[in-house]
């Protein structure tokens, strides 16, 4: 079981709720993948206030945990206010903290991220920070009070897959007891299996599932890949070597000449 701020979950797949062809396909993807945590956001509601209510009811009906985000925020103060408003709406102290630092790569502004994390942790939030694979930033986020880290492995929505595997290995080795969730950049189930084989605790996906030809089938494929990668990591993987090692024992081999 994966434990996040005291909550135990069986599924190691966290799923975003954006960009699906329809709400029904999102709901089917959640059911097929057995995901237990969904990310959601907040946006300006048009007069009348009905759209958000319909979406919120659908999410509530799915019965998962909700992880609100601060997507689109570019300053610590924006992110803190958005987190406070998300807590009011969703009734949870969980917050996926995003403070975007670059318009093209959507990489986090890690300085503002640490500032916002410190404020929110002190205010009782349980922060899931979207960060880079930088170890020093990770340390500062833990010092701020975070108990989970969510590094990217490639830019959001890029589908490039892990771009710096040695850095991800370092992160796992440096934070052996901290839940590490890969957030952003995965495109294929094999990418998810790879990061799980590296020992990451979970994966957060959105575009790779929602943008697939068949999002429901892809959600299931990712769920299987995540489970396979995690199981492989737990089983103890062989390290590659340069020379061959015969798998069939040599002892007792017949000599014909």
């Amino acid at each position: 079981m994966l434990e996040l701020y005291g909550a135990k979950v069986s599924s190691r797949l966290l799923l975003g709720t954006a960009r699906y062809p329809s709400p029904a396909i999102l709901a089917d993807a959640v059911r097929v993948s057995k995901t237990e945590i969904l990310t959601v956001s907040l946006r300006r509601e048009t007069a009348g206030g009905k759209q958000g209510g319909a979406f919120f009811q659908m999410i509530r009906d799915l019965g998962t945990r909700i992880l609100p985000n601060t997507a689109g925020c570019h300053t610590a103060s924006e992110a803190v206010l958005t987190a406070q408003m998300a807590r009011e709406v969703f009734g949870t102290n969980w917050i996926k903290l995003e403070v975007i630092g670059h318009h093209d790569t959507l990489q986090p502004d890690v300085f503002a991220l640490v500032d916002a994390a410190r404020i929110l942790c002190a205010d009782g939030f349980e922060v899931f920070p979207y960060t880079t694979d930088d170890l020093v930033v990770g340390e500062k986020l833990l010092d701020a009070g975070c108990k989970v880290l969510m590094p990217w492995c490639a830019p959001i929505g890029s589908a490039m897959g892990p771009q710096n595997i040695p850095a991800l290995r370092s992160m796992r080795a440096h934070f052996p007891d901290v839940p590490l969730i890969i957030d952003a950049g995965l495109g294929r189930p094999s990418h998810a299996a790879l990061v799980m084989e590296l020992g990451f605790d979970a994966v957060l996906l959105n575009t790779a599932v929602a943008g697939a030809g068949d999002p429901v089938q892809m959600a299931g494929a990712f769920a299987n890949a995540i489970e396979a990668g995690h199981s492989g990591y737990k089983a103890g993987l062989l390290e590659p070597r340069d020379m061959a090692v015969p798998s069939t024992p040599i002892i007792g081999k017949a000599v014909f000449s």
Partner: peptide, 30 residues
């Protein structure tokens, strides 16, 4: 004006000229 106003405080929260009000609701997010 950049400060949250909780649900229970709205009835007593007086507005002033040129106040900036944000009204947000749930939506899809990643």
């Amino acid at each position: 004006n950049g400060e949250i106003v909780h649900r229970d405080d709205r009835a007593a929260f007086d507005l002033n000229d040129h106040d900036r009000i944000e009204i947000l609701s749930p939506m899809q997010g990643g």
